[in-house]
């Protein structure tokens, strides 16, 4: 198993090694030591490998990830899993703002809490946060699912499109056009599947969550609002 010590190897060199991996590589398990909050660690991967990072990472860790599994044994800075396409990223500590921003696929699990703008403009990614999320989360969220075990900050889901937001705790306030929706059997099944994939099945029952989504009132230009422009 390759172990890359970022105290001795540059982040560029690490990322170049990971980018060069062929899809059928035998080096499927990597460890990274001494990340010290460095930026863009394991960003842009496209191979079915697992990268374990021992420590805190800086901005954009695992950005654009495809197929890889990335585990951060620490906290993550701004924009972890930004624009993830597929694969899985797991943060064992807390995540800073904009976690999973614009993500198109894959699963992001944050075992601690996430700061402001979690899931902003998400486009198909699934995000499971075991703690709470900060204000302005799921702003303009288009597709995908955001599951929060704890509380959500102000203006959750402002201008949301078709993403689903499952929150177990309190929501400080809902953003424009975001409303609570009834949870049917389909959504309960979907949520149970997400908890299973996140390894958190049994940690909470799907019945403990409430569902929030779009009221669909902002989709089209409304002539009554013409004065506002």
């Amino acid at each position: 198993m390759p172990v890359v010590d970022l105290a001795a190897t540059s982040r560029r060199a690490l990322n170049a090694m990971l980018h060069a991996l062929p899809p059928d590589t035998n080096e499927t398990h990597w460890q990274v030591a001494n990340p010290e909050g460095g930026h863009a660690i394991a960003a842009g991967l496209d191979a079915p490998v697992t990268v374990e990072i021992r420590g805190h990472v800086g901005y954009y860790c695992g950005g654009m990830n495809k197929r890889a599994t990335i585990v951060v044994d620490g906290n993550a800075g701004t924009g972890v899993a930004e624009n993830m396409m597929s694969g899985e990223i797991r943060v064992k500590g807390d995540a800073s703002q904009s976690a999973g921003a614009t993500g198109r696929g894959g699963l992001l699990v944050i075992e601690g809490s996430a700061a402001a703008r979690c899931g902003i403009s998400m486009k198909g990614i699934d995000i499971v946060v075991k703690g709470s999320i900060g204000p302005m989360s799921a702003f303009m969220a288009q597709r995908g699912n955001l599951v929060v075990f704890g509380d959500a900050g102000e203006t959750l889901g402002d201008s949301i499109y078709e993403a689903r937001l499952f929150v177990r705790g309190a929501v400080k306030s809902l953003g424009a056009d975001c409303v609570e929706k009834a949870m049917g059997a389909e959504e309960r099944g979907l949520l149970a599947g997400l908890l299973q994939r996140a390894g958190l099945y049994g940690a909470a029952s799907p019945d403990e969550f409430r569902l929030y989504g779009s009221a669909r009132r902002l989709y089209h230009f409304h002539v009554d609002n013409a004065d506002a422009y």
Partner: peptide
Amino acid sequence: EYRALAGLPGIEAAHLFE
């Protein structure tokens, strides 16, 4: 950023928060 704090003594056990 966290990077700026990484060299402080005892940072591994510090309470980190935003």
